[in-house]
Simulated scan of single mutants.
Amino acid sequence: MRKFLALALIATLALSTLGAAFAEEGKPYKIGMLPQFIGENYFDGCRAGAESAAKDFGVNFVYDGPNQSEATNAKQVEILTGWMAAGDFDAFIVSPCDSEGILPTLYAAQEMGIAVITFDSDTPDMNARTFFVNQAPADALAEAMVTIVAEDLAKHGFGEGVGARLAMISSSGLDQNANAWALAVKNYCAANFPWITVNTDETGYLGPDIWTPGSDESAAQAAANETIALSGDAKDGSEINAIIGLSSMATPALAAAWNATVGQKPVVSITGLATPMALVDYILDEENPMKYGVLWDVNDLGYLSVESTVAYLDGTIEPVAGNTFESSLGTKQFAIGVFGGLDLLLGDALIFGADTVEDYDY
């Protein structure tokens, strides 16, 4: 069915365009960047970096995405289809909402000669894009987040012989990166802190203690409220002892849910992925258990996504595992990612606490 849809889309759009070839000599490249959603500070930070790169490299840059409340594959496909019908785009840079559902459209774009690069979130089909601009290795993010909660749990009497229960608030369950991060967290706990248990199904990234509210803020807040309500310092597994947020909505929602708890507030360790600006008030609040946040430089993620796409269109980089790209941001490495696709690595995880959280403008 997907193959049929892809072929139908190709046939329809081929009537209005002969295919987007790379930019003609002397004509700037036209590149479209499609985030999962717009109007939120994480992707706003990516946009700022991408626009800076577009200016530096003379790119005709188009940025669009669904509203946060409408962050669906259907909305993303609608935008991409419109760009494809225009017939003048050289490349798409995409963060998929549904890593599998978007595949027919990405294939259709490639059939038209449009280069496809993913950023922020990948697709499981390595042939649906040329490479993925990976913000940070999943193992590095897992190490940072698990170490933060493990150290805090130890302060509350957990450790070898006294097990702790860890929950996570992920994305939609269809987000390739969030699934990889959840699996990496579970595996890092098993290898380094076996006294921390994550209750999942056989996938390792879904299950009883993995909430998947998607990108809707109200749903993420509801998931945070529920996990905080189930949390406490019981050492028999009856309560959740630590929670990690795996999205830019879920992590601040956890801190807000703890603040909003009426009566005695639970003893719980929390951290996760979010921008410093989203967590600054909670981290600086001495009472709130959100002491550290983890992320990456979102401005640099946007910048590298556009810069590497231009280099690919120019033919000045060869995206092969082991090769390097001499970016304006420093030397970046191509490597095989956790699901077997080709990644261009931005860098290491960024950890920020009370002493550094105010140093960032995103």
Rank of each mutant, 00 (worst) to 15 (best):
L9M: 15
L9G: 12
L9F: 09
L13K: 07
A14E: 13
T17Q: 04
E24M: 09
I31T: 09
G39C: 10
G39L: 06
E40L: 06
R47H: 14
E51D: 13
K55I: 14
F57H: 14
V59S: 07
N60Y: 05
S69R: 07
Q76H: 00
V77M: 01
G87Q: 10
D98T: 03
S99T: 08
P104W: 02
T105N: 00
Y107T: 15
A109K: 04
M112C: 08
G113H: 08
A115W: 00
V116C: 01
I117G: 06
D120W: 03
D120T: 01
M126R: 12
F131E: 03
E143L: 15
A144L: 10
A144F: 07
D152M: 05
E160I: 08
A167S: 14
M168N: 02
M168E: 05
S172L: 01
N179L: 15
N187V: 09
W195L: 09
I196S: 04
T197A: 13
N199P: 06
T200M: 00
I210H: 03
I210W: 02
D216M: 14
Q221Y: 15
A222R: 01
A222M: 02
A223P: 12
A224Y: 12
A229T: 11
K235W: 02
E239S: 10
N241H: 13
G245V: 02
A253C: 11
W258Y: 08
A260W: 05
Q264C: 14
K265F: 09
V268F: 03
I270K: 11
P276V: 07
L279T: 05
V280L: 06
Y282C: 02
E286P: 12
P289S: 08
L295S: 11
E307Q: 09
E307Y: 01
T309I: 06
I317A: 03
V320W: 05
Q333T: 15
F334L: 06
F334M: 03
A335R: 10
G337N: 02
G341V: 06
G341M: 02
L346H: 04
A354E: 15
A354T: 12
V357H: 03
Y360N: 02
Y360M: 08
Y360H: 03
